[in-house]
């Protein structure tokens, strides 16, 4: 009985230590990646390539997601609001819903799906095929060459994507509201503009920056720490997307608390 209890306690202890070890390793990884932003050499070409890859090439998926979400949101608010004669608030709720929550979160999750997975798979494959070792032997720090440009590019470009997503989402709501629900176009735009505040936009862009950082960091971390073989690449890709998505949702809650709880 005592031995069984000891075994259980020992397993719990090992698991707890492993969790803290992973958190510590991740924090150290993040700090190293950030510290390289301020220390030469800088790989400007790699940074620009990542800006294009993470920002420009994510525009279609971000645009379509925001467009359909904004349109569906308008229909839902109209339908729900009609139960207590509040159909007229569609422009305001679509604007606040897209800018404060749905825009940043959906863009964050889309970036996790598209960019985190791609970064993790690419870096893990580079590790499997010894390209990371090759970088080191060519006097190039893999953290500096692979991680820092990706993390910095995502941190800077995802807020822009969120801004674009917010606008497209609001436009989605606008098209549905004016074409199907009988709203006046100029009134709709006026109501949207009047209702949004500066802090709504700041919170949206801040969330974008944090989500971009998380998405790229998780891709790099799991890629760099992947196991060998095809299974290792698959595992790194899966884990990176899952952890990035959960961290994006958790940090979304914390940022919402920070901006709007008072």
């Amino acid at each position: 009985m005592i031995q069984a209890t000891q075994r259980i306690l020992s397993r719990i202890g090992r698991a707890t230590l492993a969790v803290f070890q992973s958190i510590g390793a991740l924090i150290l990884f993040a700090l190293t990646a950030v510290s390289h932003i301020f220390r030469p050499p800088f790989y400007f070409g790699a940074f620009v390539r990542q800006l294009l890859n993470i920002g420009y090439f994510s525009l279609p998926v971000v645009g379509l997601t925001a467009l359909f979400t904004g349109a569906a949101l308008a229909l839902q608010i109209y339908s729900g609001g009609s139960r207590f004669n509040a159909e007229a608030v569609v422009p305001q709720i679509v604007a606040i819903g897209m800018v404060r929550e749905l825009g940043p979160v959906l863009v964050g999750l889309m970036i996790a799906a598209r960019v985190t997975s791609s970064i993790a798979a690419e870096i893990a494959t580079m590790k499997v095929t010894e390209q990371i070792d090759a970088l080191t032997t060519l006097s190039t720090n893999p953290m500096k060459y692979l991680t820092t440009p990706r993390v910095l590019a995502a941190f800077l470009v995802v807020p822009l994507l969120v801004g674009i997503g917010d606008i497209i989402g609001i436009m989605g709501g606008f098209f549905v509201s004016t074409s199907r629900l009988g709203f006046n176009p100029s009134n709709y735009i006026q109501n949207t503009a009047d209702f949004l505040t500066f802090i709504d936009i700041v919170s949206s862009l801040t969330k974008g920056a944090v989500f971009g950082f998380i998405a790229a960091l998780m891709g790099c971390y799991y890629g760099m720490n992947s196991n060998r073989g095809a299974q290792g690449v698959g595992e790194a890709t899966k884990s990176s997307v899952v952890v990035a998505s959960v961290l994006i949702l958790a940090s979304n809650y914390l940022l919402t608390e920070m901006f709007f709880s008072s």
């Binding site: 580079m126 010894e130 090759a134 006097s139 190039t140």
Partner: peptide, 28 residues
């Protein structure tokens, strides 16, 4: 001081051959 030929080549897929060959010469 070192040059190394890796077992599988370990060439960088995203770079053209000339940039692979002269990778070290394009850094530092």
């Amino acid at each position: 001081m070192f040059g190394m030929l890796f077992q599988g080549g370990a060439l960088f897929d995203s770079l053209p051959i000339w940039q692979n060959v002269s990778f070290r010469l394009l850094q530092g």
